[in-house]
Design a protein around this nucleic acid. Sequence first.
DNA 1: GCCACAATAT
DNA 2: CATATTGTGG
Length: 526
Amino acid sequence: MSADDNESVILKSLEGGVAYYIVKPVSKDDIKNVWQYAVAAKKGKSVVIEEIEGAPREAPGEVDDGSNSEISSDTNEEQRREDDNEERMVAPKKPKVVWINSLHYQFLLAVRHIGLDRAVPKNILEFMNVPGLTRANVASHLQKYRIFLKRVAEKARLSKCLSDRVFRSSFAVGHPGLAFNSTEAGDQYSQYLKLQQQMGASPINASVFQPSSVGIDGNTINLLGLIQCPNYQQSSRSSNTMRSVTQLIGSGQSRLLNPITQANLLRHQPWVGNVNHQLHSQESRHPGDFGKQQLMNNHGSSGGMSSNSADITGLTTNNILASNLIQMFPQVKQQGIFTNNNPFSYNFGTSGIQNNFTNQQLIGNFSGTHPNCRSEILGKLNNLNGTGGLSSNGFNFNNEIINGLTKGVRNVSLSGTTAPMATLGGSSSSSSSAGFETSTTTSSAYQFLKVFNKNKEDQHQNVSVLPPPAENNDNNSTTAPTLVNKNSMSPEQELDKTLDDLMISNLFMDQHNNYQPSSSQVHIKP
DNA sequence: GCCACAATAT
DNA sequence: CATATTGTGG
């Protein structure tokens, strides 16, 4: 098969021994011909399909044992009967599974839940409970995931020196601990498991996890929905370029952020409410005070903002069933739809962050619909969150926020046209991901981090679906806005750890999101 | 030619 | 099951 329909090329190919030359795109007729050719060949007859001559077919003299011909004739008749179904001839190829964020997130939940050591394809698959997903799919993804972790660890190790420098340069200003910690994290491949655990724990708040078939009530935001519109992202090139260097540190631009190119960011910058360039306001940071330094990143380039908040439009309560997890992507790139009037970004950018999210932040007005995207809330939230919608990047919701958000959302219409209001519950702090040096922004769904399942509400929602985490069973349903300190780490350590999680998680997501599914990768239809 | 991804083979 | 290889596509 070739896209080259140049006659001379075709002839040359035939001369060279090609039996049949199909010009792409392959048509039904082509298939029909191939089939005819195949059958005829089986029967030892000569085929008269186009100019085929001397094609390598079975020896004419070969005696058929009958089975072949029987099958052949069967097919033949069938074929005749259903003239129009040549497609049948084409092996029903299973579409590729595209690991959209929500799916990946489920995967992570599973891993986390099951426990790294026991997280094998079978178990993960079982836990995920996603129709259409196969063990092989999971195995493949798990492989990728492990490789990723390995790489992260390795890079961290190798770039220790570099990172020290990097951190000292700009990033460190705000997060001295981050630098060291992150390098530590990668120090040894042996820590890989540990890293994994952290990673697994980091994703979005699990409270909303609603695997397949579990209904969701109207007041629940299903975070499992697409975290982002898959194709609503910037072309992957950009990340490739950044990929080489300080990836580890999370400097890469998050794909979540991407839907907005730098140019776009700049262009849309106006929406940004207040962008806090806190990069240098180190004094405001206190260990455990997650709300503050987040925005460091911003600094550089975009200055801010946001972005994608537009994505937020079209929030819906969509009950995202598992069946939705694997699906077709709109295949639309770069929509360029940005609603500037999204209060979201504004609020977040300003007081939300600055004030450490004091209670009752209003996130209202998710309105509008994104034409080409599905409107799973998660996607919106995430984008919101991650990108900066908030301000810059690096804004993170923590559990409490999410939880509050979840609880607070009401009237989210399915059509996405109403303007639901949500309040952020607790005061929480957001943790930051930060960007690095060049201000590349870092953000991702995974920034929702870490406090997975620590909250009763969350657990409640998950009850029917998620078993208690295999590890991390401290169930201390903390209501406090701070992260649970499960490792008896100092607040500072905890923070750093969290940051590590962020970086690592973000990194994966960056890669993950970077992938632009091809049109051929249709998603499984449950 | 390289890379990432998911599928598939080992 | 883990890992290597393959096929596709950007």
